[in-house]
Nucleic acid binder design. Structure first.
Lengths: 177, 177
DNA sequence: CGAAATAAGGATATCTTTTGTCCTTGATAG
DNA sequence: CTATCAAGGACAAAAGATATCCTTATTTCG
């Protein structure tokens, strides 16, 4: 059997996908980057601004907090702010804070099941297949490590319509404690 | 709140992960690469060699078949063989045949929920966040596109113990139709 | 021709992960 | 003192991954 052209897309249209919380966290950090010094923005405001479920967004923000990327404050006028300048915060840090640090390829070492293999056989190094897949993972990480939050803010400040940029800034300021 | 050092690993130790079928498909292709011209190896043999559930492995091989990476043959002495030389078959092709071609980052365009946004507002270009994430995806793909199946075979032929290499080859030959 | 082996693939079951809600606790500002 | 906040535990629903079983059409071999 053979098909002409690229793979027929059957049940295989679903790919490994990052959690939606990663998208949420990145957008939230972009907003926090515009916050004046010493002020905080609450989960409620961030959820409302992005049209997201507040309780679930909270889990993503807790991830950022546990990773030390944001500072938090309790009580009225509390919320989140960045723990360091946007120029020192990378995409990779944000992604990993929410999604974790595990590789996308997990080696289950199926070479060990080879029936020709002596029982006491011991592998010297990780499986070659895994090493290659891990290199691709590292290329992905390297790319994200090279992008700072300040880069995103720079792009947005050019792309977003000036009126929208301004009104959004004011919207946030009204709610920042 | 702040924690010293890297992210605390809580429930976040699970990362987006490729299907185990990707690993299986790569190892199976490595075996098929050593098959003499015109011969086929069955799902049954591939499953037994790698210690995998035959019926489920079959789904992965069907993915390879639908993508045109392997040829199949029915009946006794039937099975799979590569549809092209190992030097022309990339890791990316194999991974995508099983896992699909979708990006790891899905943009749900949450910027559209911005309450400051006019209702008739229309975006010119994809979200900047998505574009950055997609560049990382492309770096991952580029890396896998650069690795040929023949590269893997080359590494394995050097790393695998010569006796094991030889006995495995013979094991496969005995079962190849 | 008939029997055995094969790939293709549909139907179904189970387990894990993702997504989301609800509630309690302790801290803080006004 | 009260309202508001983050942290986080418990729980539920939906989606995806990991299988297993069965049917169908095809091919080889005796």
């Amino acid at each position: 059997m053979s098909l002409i052209g690229p793979a027929k897309i059957g049940p295989w249209n679903k790919f490994m996908i990052l959690k939606s919380q990663v998208e949420w966290a990145l957008h939230c950090c972009a907003i926090l980057a515009g916050l004046p010094d010493g002020r905080y923005l609450s989960t409620k405001a961030l959820a409302e601004f992005h049209g997201l479920p507040k309780e679930y967004l909270s889990k993503a923000l807790q991830g950022l907090s546990q990773a030390g990327l944001v500072d938090t404050s309790l009580g009225p006028s509390g919320g989140y702010r960045l723990a360091k300048p946007p120029a020192e915060l990378t995409f990779l840090e944000i992604v990993e804070a929410v999604e974790g640090r595990q590789r996308t390829f997990v080696c289950t070492n199926i070479r060990a099941n080879n029936p020709c293999r002596p029982k006491d056989h011991c592998e010297s190094s990780p499986c070659a297949v895994a090493r290659i897949m891990w290199e691709a993972d590292e290329a992905w990480r390297a790319k994200l490590r090279g992008v700072k939050l300040s880069d995103l803010v720079g792009i947005l400040s050019q792309e977003v319509a000036p009126e929208l940029w301004k009104s959004s800034f004011e919207w946030v300021l009204e709610r920042a404690g």
